[in-house]
Amino acid sequence: MSKKIVLITGTNSGFGWLAAHSVAVLGHKVYATMRDTEGKNADKAQALSAVENVTVLDVTLTDDRSVEQAVKTIISKEGSIDVLVNNAGFSMHGVAESFTTGDVRAMFDVNVFAPWRFIKQVLPAMRKQQEGLIINVTSGFGRISFPFATVYAASKFGLEGLSEGLHYEVKRLGIDVAILEPGAFPTEMSQKTVYASEQSVFEGYGAIAEIPDKMMAAVGELIQTHKTNPQDVADAIIKLIDTEKGKRPLRTVVDPITGKYIDTINKAVAVQFGKGLTMFGMGELLA
Rank of each mutant, 00 (worst) to 15 (best):
R251V: 10
F141N: 11
A149Q: 12
K120F: 01
K260C: 00
R143Y: 08
M215P: 02
R248G: 03
T150V: 11
D58A: 14
M1K: 11
T55S: 15
T243Q: 14
D43A: 15
G283H: 10
M282S: 10
S13K: 14
N53L: 03
K3A: 12
T278P: 01
A70K: 13
T264V: 03
M215F: 10
G132C: 08
S197Y: 02
L166M: 10
M126Q: 12
K214T: 03
S49V: 04
L277S: 02
R65F: 06
I8N: 09
D43C: 02
N87Y: 08
N86G: 11
V67C: 13
V219T: 09
L250D: 05
F202R: 12
T243S: 13
A234L: 05
S2I: 10
P249R: 08
K245M: 09
F273D: 02
G140E: 05
V233P: 03
R105H: 14
T101W: 13
E181V: 02
V254N: 07
N111L: 04
K260I: 05
F146M: 11
V269R: 09
L123R: 07
K260N: 12
G79N: 11
G16T: 06
A47G: 15
T264A: 15
M216F: 02
F273M: 11
T62H: 07
D213Y: 10
K40V: 05
A154C: 04
G27A: 08
Y205T: 00
Q224V: 01
K44C: 03
T101H: 13
A184G: 04
Q231V: 05
R248P: 01
D63R: 15
V25A: 04
A50Q: 14
A88T: 08
G27W: 11
L84G: 08
V104S: 06
S163R: 02
E221F: 07
V104E: 04
H28K: 13
A184S: 11
V95I: 13
G79L: 09
S139W: 09
I265P: 00
L84A: 07
T37L: 01
T258K: 09
A19S: 15
A268F: 00
K239C: 01
A149W: 06
K3I: 02
V253H: 08
A196T: 01
